[in-house]
Simulated scan of single mutants.
Amino acid sequence: MTDTGAQRPAVYLNTADLEALARLGLDEDEARAVIAARPLREWGDLKRVEGIDQDRINALKSAGADLGGPSSGPIREPGSGGSADSPAGNLGRA
């Protein structure tokens, strides 16, 4: 018996890598544009990305997209030495 009510884990647009964004149906150029548009504070911010309109936003939500929190704190700040794509961030670094 298959559980059709199982939810997919959310893909957080503010922290997802290219591979995770591709699972939402974005091609590589779109995924790179979403990453460049960060931080996304509200869904409407995605409209800054060429080719993404409200219908596409709705499709992304249906595919499991969530905004997640914008990168924040010392590990995620530009120039901190941390990496938003690294699970460990900048742990162990001064």
Rank of each mutant, 00 (worst) to 15 (best):
91 L>R: 10
14 N>P: 03
55 D>N: 14
22 A>T: 12
48 R>K: 15
24 L>W: 00
39 P>G: 10
6 A>M: 03
70 P>W: 00
88 A>N: 14
63 A>G: 05
86 S>N: 10
1 M>I: 04
74 P>T: 08
25 G>R: 00
2 T>W: 02
22 A>C: 07
79 G>A: 12
4 T>R: 08
80 S>M: 09
22 A>H: 03
48 R>S: 05
79 G>L: 11
74 P>Y: 05
53 D>L: 14
19 E>M: 02
22 A>R: 04
13 L>F: 05
39 P>T: 10
13 L>C: 06
82 G>D: 03
55 D>A: 11
52 I>A: 13
37 A>K: 05
28 E>P: 01
21 L>A: 00
36 A>E: 13
52 I>R: 07
65 A>S: 08
65 A>R: 00
19 E>N: 08
48 R>A: 11
80 S>N: 03
49 V>Y: 08
29 D>A: 09
56 R>D: 13
80 S>P: 02
26 L>C: 11
20 A>P: 05
9 P>D: 15
69 G>N: 14
41 R>E: 06
91 L>A: 15
40 L>V: 07
68 G>M: 01
47 K>T: 15
17 D>G: 11
24 L>K: 02
77 E>Q: 14
75 I>C: 14
92 G>I: 06
1 M>D: 09
4 T>D: 07
93 R>E: 05
61 K>M: 13
50 E>K: 12
82 G>P: 01
10 A>T: 03
57 I>V: 15
68 G>S: 06
20 A>R: 00
70 P>D: 04
54 Q>F: 10
59 A>C: 14
16 A>I: 02
78 P>I: 14
28 E>S: 05
31 A>Q: 03
56 R>G: 06
78 P>S: 13
26 L>G: 01
4 T>A: 01
46 L>P: 04
30 E>M: 10
80 S>I: 02
36 A>T: 14
87 P>R: 02
47 K>C: 14
79 G>W: 13
64 G>I: 00
15 T>R: 10
16 A>G: 01
4 T>Y: 11
66 D>R: 09
85 D>N: 05
45 D>A: 12
52 I>D: 06
11 V>D: 00
77 E>V: 15
21 L>D: 02
91 L>C: 10
72 S>V: 04
7 Q>G: 13
94 A>M: 08
87 P>E: 03
20 A>H: 00
79 G>R: 13
58 N>A: 15
61 K>V: 15
46 L>W: 06
2 T>K: 01
4 T>N: 01
87 P>C: 05
77 E>C: 10
17 D>V: 07
45 D>R: 09
26 L>S: 02
30 E>V: 04
37 A>E: 09
